[in-house]
Nucleic acid binder design. Structure first.
Lengths: 337, 337
DNA sequence: CCTGCAACTGCAATCGGTTGCGGCGACAAT
DNA sequence: ATTGTCGCCGCAACCGATTGCAGTTGCAGG
C-alpha cells in the first residue's frame, strides 16, 4: 500500500482513505481516482491481517454445526455464504459431531482466530457454551435449534406448523392411530415438534392412547430404526408415523421392512426437512419441506446486523425469533387407509 | 501478551519465546513455567492477526470445490479438517458452482486473506487459474481432478482400476453390450474413466461397436438422464451401463423408468463414488467405492508438507500423484443376464 | 584473576494498514 | 487585511505479536 501511495504521489494515509469505502468522502475525488488507478496497476490487495490487527475486526464468522456430512447443513452453509460473501465476510466452518468437548475446542479455536461472530446450529436447550458466549457479549445467531431461555436471535422453520401439516395430512388420509418418533428431548426442535404433535392430534380429537410418542436417541437413521422397532413391538396397531426428521424416517422405513411391513400399504411415514434425495428413497418420502438455504441467508443477515450494531457501540437487539414457513410435500410414503 | 509478560516478570519477547513451540528451547525452563502459568491465569490467547502480520503465515488454507451440496464433498472436507486442525490450520471453503468467473472471485478473495495454500477439487484439464497459481509458486494440492500437465500433486481414487472393476463385474454377469455414460471430457476424471472403459472392454474382447460411449454434459442427475435417453434411443440393445458417477447413474435410473425399462431386469447400472444414500435408491446402486475422507486427509497432508517445504526455502516437490485403491460394492442395480 | 563461551533475556525494529490530530491553503465573511 | 471555516492531506502513533542482535550473567578453563 505504501507502493500504491508512492505511485499516486500521496501519503499512505491518503491512499488508505481513498481505498476505504466510508472514508472515501475525506479525499479529493481526483486524488482518489489516481490512487485507485495506482492500486489497480500494481494489483494491490489489502493485507487482511494488518487491517484486522488495527481495526479489531476480521470479517470472519464462525459456523458451528454438528456434521457437514448431514445433507441438512450444506444448503444452510451455502445460504450463509451467499450473504456473507456479499459483505466481504468469510465463514469458518467447524463440525462438532454433537460432542461438547469437540465443540468447546472448535469454539476456542474460532475465538482464537478473532471471529466477529458465530452462527450456531448445534444449540442445546441447556447450553453452557452459549451461556458463556452470551455473558461475554459475543454476537451469535442460532439456526434451527434454540435454547430454552432466549439468549440469541433464532432463525428456524416453523416446526409447529410443519408438524400440524403432517398430522393434518395423515388424518385426512383416514389414519386414527398415529405415532410420533421424536428426536432427542434435549434439542429444541424435538421439543417443539413433540409438543406440536400432541397439540395437533388432540385438535383432531385423537386420544393420547392412540398417538404414542417414542423418543429416538439422536436424529439419525440408526436411532430412528431402533425407536421404530420399539414402537412396532409395543404398538403394532399404528398405521402412520410422523418422524422427527428425515433420517429418523429413513430408519423407520428400514425397520418396517425388517419387520415384514410395507410402506405405505401397512404404515404411512412422514419425514421432516425434505433433505436431498429423500425423493429417491423407496418409497419416495412424504415430508415437510424446510427452506434451509433461506435459513442460512436470514441467519447471516441477522448476525451481520448484530455485528454492525455492536461495532457502533449500540446495545444488542432483543433475541427475536424468525420462523420461516414450511410446506408439505406429498410423495409415496403415505396413503389412504 | 504484554500483560502475561508483566505478570511473569519478564519482557514480552521472552514471553513470546516461552509460548512458542520451536523457540521454547531458548528460554529457561523455570521462566517458561512462570510464563505459561501467567498465560493460563490470564486466559491468554494469541492474536492471530498480529502473528500473521509479522510471520506472513495465516495457518489457513483455501478449499475450492464445485458445490458443498454435492454429497461427494462433505466427506472430503471432513478429511481435510481432520489433519488441518491437528496442525492448527483452518480451512476456508469456497463453492465455485463450476463457474470460472465465480471461481476467480473466490480465489482472489482467498488470496486476499493470505491463505497459505490451496486444496483444489475443481481442476479442469486445461485450467488458466491453476497455470497462474503455478507460475506464482503457490502451494496447491489437487483433489480428485487433475490437470493435463502435472503442475501440482494430485490425490485421487484409482479411477482406471475402478472402472475395470465395474466392467469386470458386468462381464462376469454375462453382459456383452455395455455402454459408458461418461462425464464431461474437460474433466480428468471423465477422461481417465473413459479411457479405462475402452481398455477394459477391449481386454474382455468386446468390440467397440458393442460398447458405445455417450458423454453427459455434466456430472449431474439431469445430464445423466439426458445422456441416457440419447443412448436408449440409439442403442436399445445395451444391457448394462457404467455411469461416470453416481449422479449420472441416478439420472440413468430415472431415464430407464421413464422409458418403461426396469433396472436391473432389463438394464444393469453401475455407479461411481458410492456417495451417501445410493444404497437407499430404488434399486440400491451397485457402485465403485471411493474413500473420500482419505482423499481429504492425504491431500491436506501433502499440502502441509508443501507449505512447510516452502517456508524452509526448499524448492517444491515433484507433482506426484497419489492414487487410493477403490473397490466394488455390489447392490441390486446389477444382475446376471 | 582473567578470558571465553554458553545460556538467557531484553531492546527495538518490523509486519501493513488505520485514524486522531494538526497543518495548510483557498475562500468567504467581517 | 484579519479572522474563521472548510476541504484535503500528511504525520505519527498504534494494533500485538516475532525476531535479529546485543547485552548480561554464570561458569569453566587457563
Amino acid at each position: 500500500m505504501s507502493d500504491v501511495a508512492e505511485l499516486a504521489g500521496v501519503h499512505k494515509a491518503t491512499a488508505s482513505r481513498a481505498l476505504s469505502v466510508d472514508a472515501a468522502g475525506q479525499v479529493n475525488a481526483d486524488t482518489a481516482r489516481r490512487v485507485l488507478a495506482a492500486a489497480r496497476k500494481l494489483g494491490y490487495t489489502p493485507n487482511t491481517a494488518a487491517r484486522s490487527l488495527r481495526t479489531n475486526r476480521t470479517l470472519t464468522v464462525g459456523v458451528l454445526l454438528p456434521d457437514l456430512t448431514n445433507p441438512l447443513f450444506p444448503p444452510i452453509v451455502r445460504g450463509t455464504e451467499e450473504v456473507l460473501m456479499a459483505r466481504g465476510y468469510t465463514a469458518l466452518i467447524a463440525n462438532t459431531d454433537n460432542d461438547p468437548v469437540r465443540e468447546r475446542r472448535q469454539f476456542d479455536a474460532l475465538l482464537g482466530r478473532q471471529v466477529d461472530g458465530f452462527l450456531v446450529a448445534t444449540a442445546l436447550r441447556e447450553h453452557a457454551l452459549l451461556d458463556e458466549a452470551h455473558a461475554a457479549g459475543l454476537p451469535v445467531v442460532l439456526i434451527n435449534r434454540g435454547t430454552d431461555r432466549p439468549l440469541f436471535p433464532l432463525v428456524a422453520g416453523d416446526d409447529a406448523a410443519g408438524v400440524a401439516l403432517a398430522v393434518e395430512h395423515l388424518v385426512e388420509l383416514g389414519h386414527r392411530t398415529i405415532a410420533h418418533l421424536a428426536g432427542p428431548a434435549g434439542l429444541s426442535t424435538a421439543h417443539v415438534r413433540t409438543r406440536a404433535f400432541r397439540a395437533a392430534v388432540s385438535a383432531y380429537g385423537l386420544a393420547a392412547a392412540d398417538t404414542p410418542i417414542v423418543e429416538a436417541a439422536s436424529y439419525s437413521q440408526e436411532a430412528g430404526a431402533d425407536a421404530a422397532h420399539l414402537l412396532l413391538a409395543q404398538r403394532p396397531d399404528v398405521t402412520a408415523v410422523v418422524a422427527g426428521n428425515d433420517l429418523i424416517a429413513l430408519g423407520v422405513l428400514h425397520a418396517l421392512r425388517a419387520s415384514g411391513r410395507r410402506c405405505p400399504e401397512d404404515v404411512s411415514v412422514v419425514g421432516f426437512n425434505n433433505m436431498r434425495f429423500v425423493d429417491e428413497l423407496q418409497p419416495p418420502l412424504t415430508t415437510i419441506h424446510v427452506p434451509h438455504f433461506h435459513l442460512g441467508t436470514e441467519a447471516a443477515r441477522l448476525l451481520l446486523e448484530q455485528i454492525d450494531r455492536r461495532a457502533r457501540g449500540e446495545e444488542a437487539q432483543l433475541p427475536k425469533t424468525i420462523l420461516l414457513p414450511l410446506h408439505l410435500v406429498v410423495r409415496a410414503s403415505t396413503q389412504r387407509r
